[in-house]
């Protein structure tokens, strides 16, 4: 149940963020494994390299912040500004990659236990 809730919240948060860009197409893909999961998001919204970099940075915080992730993690998905919301997501996941598909963005989120190995691109 915990995994289901966590996944549904993360999917909600990310789609909420992407829908703010008002895309015409949005694809969400989930791949689950025993000790982890991989979420992919694609949209067709054109973004500058600078915007992409901001998303990438926010989703990959330099330091773990358990004191903020666990308690304030429920805040993500509200109407927080871009940086704060993505950072809250970033604190809760293992790794994120952000690619510019031009037009459109491709965001991969990996989440799971320590034993879950994030595949190298």
């Amino acid at each position: 149940m915990k995994r289901k809730e966590f996944l549904s919240r993360l999917i909600g948060e990310m789609t909420d963020f992407l829908l703010e860009g008002d895309p015409l197409r949005l694809v969400v893909s989930l791949h689950q494994e025993e000790d982890g999961a991989h979420l992919s998001f694609f949209d067709d919204q054109e973004r500058t390299e600078r915007e992409i970099e901001k998303i990438r940075t926010a989703l990959n915080p330099k330091r773990n912040r358990p004191e903020l992730a666990a308690y304030y993690g429920t805040m993500a998905g509200r109407d927080l500004n871009l940086g704060s919301r993505l950072k809250l997501i970033g604190w809760q996941i293992k790794q994120a990659t952000v690619t510019n598909n031009n037009p459109g963005i491709h965001i991969d989120l990996w989440l799971g236990s320590d034993s879950f190995i994030v595949p190298k691109k």
């Binding site: 358990p66 004191e67 903020l68 992730a69 666990a70 308690y71």
Partner: peptide, 10 residues
């Protein structure tokens, strides 16, 4: 089953 750090602010 979370670290005390996760609840430290609380």
């Amino acid at each position: 089953k979370v670290s005390f750090g996760s609840y430290s602010i609380i």
